[in-house]
């Protein structure tokens, strides 16, 4: 299994811990990675202004991976959805497919089908497997109670692809429990982080993020676990502004699943980018035996 990391804009330009931790744990778990220079934005923002532009960007990224014979692992839920959606639209509309082909030809590329698009949940839960992860744990996260945030775009709509149950996602909680922690369900598990309202309704976006963090905090969890760079940017990166927006005190540690996995595998917190998290992750790391 050869894998190329598709960071997407948020991880590539700002959420560096996401890519750092992913690279560290994949290396540790023996997953072969290939570098694909030239990846860009998945296309999402352009979806607001037209169809051809964004589908072209998605198809171009897929073609780059295909040229290297690599599967993609997406670090942002939205990128993952956009790739599947671009493919579905090209299959539905020969006219669109024709336009995309001729645009790719201008860059000397072909639209290549069949690139494997993996979500980290599929990679860790379905490929590497919960049992294998359990076997590799060196520092079990005993006594920690962590809430899982799978994120909207990974699980909906189910017609597009099926990464996890769209109403009751269980893969992330199971992966967290494989590390020795507990991850019980909570009523706000499906609540949205607000990431894509940030560019059109900032206050509403920060309110969504703040209310999500507040709910998890009030249930008494030790922290919140994310698997998407866009969601993490809201819940960790903007936790302070979200607190101001909703007028509450928020101090919930938020970590990427890959950071947590790295800690359990015994890796150095700095190599997992934990110094880059904005929320008080020290409170969480300090509880690990």
């Amino acid at each position: 299994m050869k894998i190329a990391i598709f960071p997407g804009c948020v991880a590539a330009t700002e959420q560096y811990a996401c890519e750092l931790a992913t690279r560290e744990v994949l290396r540790e778990l023996g997953v072969e990675m290939v570098e694909v220079p030239g990846f860009s934005c998945c296309g999402w923002p352009l979806q607001n202004v037209g169809t051809v532009g964004w589908v072209y960007l998605a198809a171009r990224n897929l073609a780059l991976a295909a040229e290297k014979g690599a599967g993609l692992v997406t670090l942002c839920n939205v990128c993952n959805r956009m790739f599947y959606e671009a493919r579905a639209l090209m299959a539905a509309s020969p006219e669109l497919r024709e336009k995309i082909s001729s645009l790719l030809k201008e860059e000397g590329r072909e639209p290549l089908d069949g690139v494997e698009i993996l979500h980290p949940l599929e990679l860790f839960h379905d490929r590497i497997g919960v049992e294998e992860i359990k076997r590799r744990v060196k520092r079990p996260l005993k006594g920690l109670k962590l809430a899982a945030h799978t994120g909207c775009q990974a699980i909906r709509p189910r017609q597009l692809r099926s990464i996890d149950d769209p109403e009751y996602p269980q893969k992330l909680p199971r992966l967290v429990e494989a590390l020795g922690a507990q991850s019980p369900h909570y009523p706000e598990a499906l609540d949205c982080c607000g990431a894509y309202l940030f560019y059109t309704r900032k206050d509403a976006s920060l309110t969504l993020a703040g209310e999500k963090v507040e709910a998890v905090q009030n249930w008494g969890y030790d922290g919140l676990v994310t698997i998407c760079s866009s969601g993490h940017r809201m819940l960790d990166g903007k936790q302070d502004s979200a607190a101001t927006t909703i007028g509450k005190v928020l101090n919930l540690p938020v970590v990427y699943y890959t950071q947590l996995l790295g800690l359990a595998l015994g890796l150095d917190p700095e190599r997992l980018g934990l110094q880059l998290n904005r929320s008080p992750v020290k409170n969480l790391v300090g509880k690990i035996g």
Binding site: F39, G50, V52, G53, Y56, L57, L96, K99
Partner: peptide
């Protein structure tokens, strides 16, 4: 993270965005 030929990238993308569905 870099786009090897940014000028080419931009020009093809602009063209793509002008195409309408």
């Amino acid at each position: 993270i870099d786009l090897p030929d940014l000028a080419k990238f931009s020009s093809v993308l602009m063209k793509a965005m002008e195409e309408q569905m």
